[in-house]
Design a protein around this nucleic acid. Sequence first.
DNA 1: AGCGTAACTGAACAGGTGTTCTTTTAAAAC
DNA 2: GTTTTAAAAGAACACCTGTTCAGTTACGCT
Lengths: 195, 195
Amino acid sequence: MARTAGSHSDITGPRVRTAALSLFARHGYAAVSMRQIAREVGVQAGALYNYTPDKQSLLFDLMQTHMTDLMAARTDEPTGGTALERLEAFTRFHIRFHSARPDEVFIAYMELRNLTPENFAVIEGLRRQYEDALESILQDGQTEGSLAVPDTKVATLAVIAMLTGVNTWFREGGRLSLGEVEQVYWDMVRKAVAA
Amino acid sequence: MARTAGSHSDITGPRVRTAALSLFARHGYAAVSMRQIAREVGVQAGALYNYTPDKQSLLFDLMQTHMTDLMAARTDEPTGGTALERLEAFTRFHIRFHSARPDEVFIAYMELRNLTPENFAVIEGLRRQYEDALESILQDGQTEGSLAVPDTKVATLAVIAMLTGVNTWFREGGRLSLGEVEQVYWDMVRKAVAA
DNA sequence: AGCGTAACTGAACAGGTGTTCTTTTAAAAC
DNA sequence: GTTTTAAAAGAACACCTGTTCAGTTACGCT
């Protein structure tokens, strides 16, 4: 056999995804052309098609990878404890995970409308799974009596919206450290859903 | 004088803005062409330029109008009372105002990156003004002693993120009425920032 | 009835779009 | 050193982009 399959593609492939990620986050999927991505990688546009069947798949792969990473990281977290303890763990995990991947997070919910219906359904399913994890905690807390929310489903969405909002303003090296941000949000979440 | 200026433009002008609003919200600014907008209005693309100098101004006008409406509606609200009363009024106002204009709200913060730097600065300024209104309430509450937040600026952003999240799921005719949604969110906001 | 003009058409402009495909390059395996 | 083949180049495809502008239409006014 001649050159091992992907001897260069090992380098170029990830570079394509990295370039697409950064450009999609900065300018939006629809506003970024395949030629712009290629220029960033240092390659002609046609060469991109060695790494993705089309532009849509490139977007979908980025979003799916992000959501899969999220789910995997979540299940790696230590589990167990009271509902309150698990809620704190969820809160801190969410902030930590999302603040470390601003581009992925931004794309994952700004570009939902640019997915084909089938691809959208997949991403939506993963997002629902993640929300369900939080909803379970809130439900258990109600059963335990340690938490009291007016509506479990709404509280779930409210907490996630609040936590994801961190990404719109938090920057490393700012007034607050990530640990301080975690603490501030945990204070508010805890009070908001406390019994 | 012949035909009064704008005898048709009184009709077509608003129709252009309405079509652009709906299309931008559904597909995104970059993904919508002037010809698509024109088709929706029932006119040729060239005719749109009787109503906007260019596509960018169309986007900016929609966003500026929305933000201006928001500020105007806010100052029309009854003022005064304790910080807690004003916070409740703000919470309910925010949900009511935003849930009535899903397209405008969606565009106003999904399309920020498609504004020119100058236009972005204008919209950003208006958004900051609105945030400051809430921040003042939280600050007054701290002074009064009725409210206690770990960080006023962060609490402001957290509350707004939480409230704006309503638009991602609330639909008229669903499980909860708008009044019930207001109540659910007010419960959580109140507890989150209570002393 | 006919003038003035706002509103619109339709063609044109220069350039960009995603994607395909043949050809070239160059590195690994023999 | 030759062969094999993955990777990339570069041209081509048909079509779409925002915007301009000369020409046409049709309405309000006198």
